[in-house]
Nucleic acid binder design. Sequence first.
DNA 1: CGCAAAAATTAGCTTTATCTAACACTTTTA
DNA 2: TAAAAGTGTTAGATAAAGCTAATTTTTGCG
Lengths: 146, 146
Amino acid sequence: MKDRVSVALESYLEQIADLQKEHGAVRTSDLADRMGCRRSSVTNALQRLSEKGLINYQSYRPVTLTAEGEKTIKALSRYHGILADFLENILAFPEKFAQEEACRLEHRVSQSTIERMRIYIEFIEQTDNLDRGLASAKFKEFMQKR
Amino acid sequence: MKDRVSVALESYLEQIADLQKEHGAVRTSDLADRMGCRRSSVTNALQRLSEKGLINYQSYRPVTLTAEGEKTIKALSRYHGILADFLENILAFPEKFAQEEACRLEHRVSQSTIERMRIYIEFIEQTDNLDRGLASAKFKEFMQKR
DNA sequence: CGCAAAAATTAGCTTTATCTAACACTTTTA
DNA sequence: TAAAAGTGTTAGATAAAGCTAATTTTTGCG
């Protein structure tokens, strides 16, 4: 069982995936902007990600994810999505906050909790469809009145 | 706004509070057992906690929390309690898991999310009392059927 | 009491993750 | 096309958090 990559490196990896989608190529300075750190810290991170086989990296060349890196990202972004969905649609947070909080939590929340959140969302949706509780709508209403 | 103590140090602080309650005095080796690390790492942590004014520490003496340390712990354990409550009573996890997961998350979840979880629990309880949805019971039932 | 065992600390090393400053490559542009 | 600007990397520091091995302090017992 290959040891899990650190929270910091996971975040770099996510930003790389994001930038790849947006711009194709991924540059050190864009990553530094996103991560709020110096370019030299990015270089250091890229070297470590490369050693772990998660990115294709050569000096002065734009970066891409390896197949392994893609796989890691896929799992992570699923976690992120479910978390953000839960925060927005169950706990009734605004989307922006939900996204930010999901970023903070996705590296820590266990798989069981993620799956349970998914099931909970499904449950609430079913309840809503049965027009019995309209639980999520009711919660939003409840929030307004406080 | 004094900068927040690290996740690692926060964990040490919690174990200190726990041991203080159980045994009065807090010894390096007990802490090492609890934290699953070496005694030398504990000494190192104690020195840093002491520099931050969170514990009273002198070489070879048992450790106690400062007022500041107590305050930190109080906030943390409130977070822990709400999280565990949410995991157990909303997401229907067994108590043991809820406690463990709360330990992992309490250092990362933002205050807003904690407060919102508290409100959500309150909301569900009210709903349940109105005998309208019995949402939490229904969710447990729903879980059983899967 | 005095000494051995246990407990705690120190010293020194490692890795991660960050920084600044200096240097090396690339790209732009006059 | 060559100098300047911009981008990327290296070198060297620092701090957190851990480790092992060696040393120091405390404690318990014969």
